[in-house]
Computed example of a mutant assay.
Amino acid sequence: MKIIDQLNRIISIKETPKRIVSLVPSQTELLFDLGLETTIVGITKFCIHPKHLLKSKTIVGGTKQIKLDKIKALQPDIILCNKEENTEAIVKACEQIAVVHVSDIMTIQDCIDMIQQYGEIFNTPKKALKISETIQNNVNDFNLFIKNKHPLKVAYYIWKNPWMVAGQNTFINYLLRLNNFDNVYAHLGRYPEIDEKGLEDADVVLLSSEPYPFKKEHIEELQTRYTNANILLVDGEMFSWYGSRLIKAFAYFKTLHQNL
């Protein structure tokens, strides 16, 4: 079987992979929801859904720093990567061990394409189709919910020391647009650092739970920077995880809007 991944790399798969290493947390969750738990042999320390996998599977490092010796020892049939989560060097190193599939997610359609491709690779087309259709139906329903909502200027923070936000060409920015949020830092790079000189006015400031674990005390700290903004803690997984996590995301977004 010839597969073209989302970086337009042609990969050859002789038979359905039976030993999978996933270096992407959201894709690990997707594998589980596709019914592939028994074929997962290696994951990262950030693959926290479902939590029991951290105890039952081999941890091969993080998403940016991996232990190649552990991966090699697992004798995987395929290694799953992502353009943003994993470095080019990691992909090249993993290619010396097994077939590597790389996802590249910027839109909902990219997510659906990846899910359906996994269905083909791992011979779970019906489950992949069901997940894809559920996500698309939830998106369609959410578009009806959001279409009459007044646009809001939003800043989405992902890090502290230095302060960093989500900018252009990110999946987060794409989901902000779906929420009828005008990202005030969309004119900047993907994850720019923000100092006092770079502050933009915002109606709402969202503090993500990941990768930096923002807490309530950070709301007070940022309130001095955004004196007129509504500052909220948000579930970062809903804004940055793709795959089956998106099934839950749009109900979460509805609740978020109701709390604004």
Rank of each mutant, 00 (worst) to 15 (best):
M1Y: 06
K2P: 10
I11S: 02
P17D: 00
K18I: 10
I20A: 03
I20Y: 00
S22K: 01
V24D: 01
S26V: 00
S26N: 10
E29W: 05
D33M: 08
L36S: 00
L36Y: 00
T39I: 15
I43M: 05
I48F: 10
P50G: 03
L54M: 05
K55M: 13
K55Q: 15
K55E: 15
K57Q: 05
V60I: 09
G62W: 03
I71N: 02
I71L: 01
K72Q: 09
K72E: 07
L74A: 06
Q75L: 13
Q75Y: 12
L80H: 06
C81T: 06
N82W: 04
N82T: 06
K83Q: 14
E84M: 05
E95L: 09
V99N: 07
M106Q: 15
D113Q: 14
M114P: 09
I115M: 08
I115T: 03
Y118N: 04
G119Y: 04
E120R: 14
F122R: 03
P125H: 07
K126C: 11
I131N: 03
S132I: 06
E133I: 12
N138L: 12
K147H: 10
K149M: 06
A155M: 02
A155S: 04
Y156V: 02
N161Y: 11
W163G: 11
N169H: 09
T170W: 01
F171C: 00
I172C: 07
N179Q: 06
V184Q: 02
Y185M: 00
L188G: 08
Y191E: 02
I194W: 02
E196P: 06
L199F: 05
V205C: 10
S209C: 13
E210G: 08
E210N: 11
P211G: 12
P211N: 11
F214K: 02
K215E: 15
I219T: 07
I219A: 06
L222S: 03
Q223H: 12
Q223L: 08
N228A: 13
I231E: 04
L233R: 03
L233I: 04
L233Y: 01
E237A: 08
M238D: 00
S240F: 05
Y242W: 07
S244P: 04
L246A: 01
K248A: 12
Y252E: 02
T255H: 14
N259I: 13
